[in-house]
Amino acid sequence: MTEAAAPSTPGRAIRSPALASHFHDLRQQHAAADLGLWIFLATEILFFGGLFAAYLVYAVLYPDGFLDAAAETEIVIGTINTALLLTSGLTAALAVKAAGAGMRRSVTMLIAVTIGLGLVFLGAKGYEYWLDLDHHLYPTSPEFPLAAPPAKLFWSLYWTMTGLHAIHILVGLGTWGIILFQTVRRSFSLTDNSRIRIAGLYWGFVDLMWLFIWPLLYLMGRAT
């Protein structure tokens, strides 16, 4: 980015092909893209915030029911998934760094690893869902194992939170997939285009949400 911001560009004599016509220079364009994504992330915080507000209200109203219900989640898979996401957060952050330095091989590899970790996350999540369904841990099941009615509230929140998070992972993986394809095809400039930084920011956010979902759904109710 420092490279793009260098003031040595003499007017528009050499326009980067990445520069859209309504922007004055690349620095302005990058600032717009970054700010746009940060604002979008603020909306995402509030999107999940509605769900967390519901969790907060019910956890305060029914602490016992929530502690009991939370003890039924698959903590091992949940914790492994936390580790997977944190690792993918590292590789994504490094990919952004490498892109800023124009290191195409390194970017390709790091994005591929990020995608791999994301896929393993989804695989683990799928296995966990399968176990949950096997244990009748869904609110409409006639054999729902927990007696207290608020347990069903907890499990409704569990499915909604993890489901929406998984959708975000899927969107992120799709984005990374397209970018990986374009990186291999060399169809865009690593330093002039914002897309890797944008995808990295989004992926960081997906990480961030999991950091709160994980304690709320998996670590809750373990100290007995």
């Binding site: 029911g65 069903k152 499915w159």
Partner: peptide, 11 residues
């Protein structure tokens, strides 16, 4: 999906 968050029967 029956994931009732606002369902009074479940509190």
């Amino acid at each position: 999906l029956g994931l009732g968050i606002f369902d009074p029967n479940r509190g």
